[in-house]
Design a binder for these strands. Structure first.
Lengths: 141, 141
DNA sequence: TATTGTTATACTCTATAACTATA
DNA sequence: TATAGTTATAGAGTATAACAATA
């Protein structure tokens, strides 16, 4: 393994990209039945955890642009999983919450994510998982 | 931090995605002058390390589809950084190598990557970097 | 039959810019 | 002025399917 001059295997960014790709691929292969992308699951999850959340809150939590967040919210709204309501205190804001269908979908998604995480974590001890999460958190702040 | 019911912070895949996003963002912000994407740098690097490499080799090394690899090789060829030559032993294969311009570009890219990696690694000890790479490698195999 | 390269196609993610409405 | 949402647009990454040439 490894090239001769450059040794790309010492490049941390390269490993992060490959690991991300592997996780994305496993997700895509096993979540076709769910009909949701990774991002859509995250938004559904965060909305279920905190009903009334605004798009700008979601964007900050997921470190995404407002426009990117819009696209995902639109998709979930189009599937009838999320509904929007104007804020009573600040009419610029839209409060998001799950529909009944969205809550059911989130339950399915949580079960699917649990299986996905089990696959991902099977190669680590509990201490290693904690360590990995802590190290990654230092990168994304 | 953390939601109430789900605790998305315990989801490893979520942290991998956020870390990947943070690295991508830093790359995009600091590599505009180079005129290359992360993937293009990787292909340039691997080609420089192993002249005569085929597209299928690159695809395997970077865990990408053949079609995706094509797009990146095309872009590099269009910039005059890579040249292709039919293999002498297997005429299905195309051997890739750097042009003089490509070799120069790779030198610049390596310097830029070194700065990028320094930014990324500044938050870790040397032992932690080794640990993180080892853990990530278990994910992407 | 299997492998390599190629093209066409489509979807997701990401970001920028400009606009509207509200604070 | 600043913030939240919206829309349009564009580029990057990813993958599938189908085809040609070669092994």
């Amino acid at each position: 393994m490894g090239g001769k001059a450059g040794d790309i295997d010492a490049v941390l960014g390269f490993h992060i990209r490959l690991a991300h790709g592997a996780v994305l691929r496993h997700f895509a292969e096993h979540f076709a039945a769910l009909g949701l992308t990774q991002k859509q699951v995250s938004v559904l999850w965060l909305t279920g955890d905190k009903p009334g959340v605004s798009q700008i809150d979601l964007a900050a939590r997921m470190q995404m642009d407002r426009a990117t967040t819009m696209a995902i919210v639109h998709a979930l709204e189009g599937k009838g999983l999320i509904e929007r309501r104007a804020s009573a205190t600040d009419r610029r804001r839209i409060c998001l919450s799950l529909t009944t269908s969205g809550a059911n979908k989130l339950d399915q998604a949580r079960a699917a994510i649990a299986a996905h995480e089990a696959w991902l974590k099977q190669r680590f001890s509990a201490a290693e998982v904690d360590m990995l999460i802590e190290l990654l958190a230092r990168i994304h702040g």
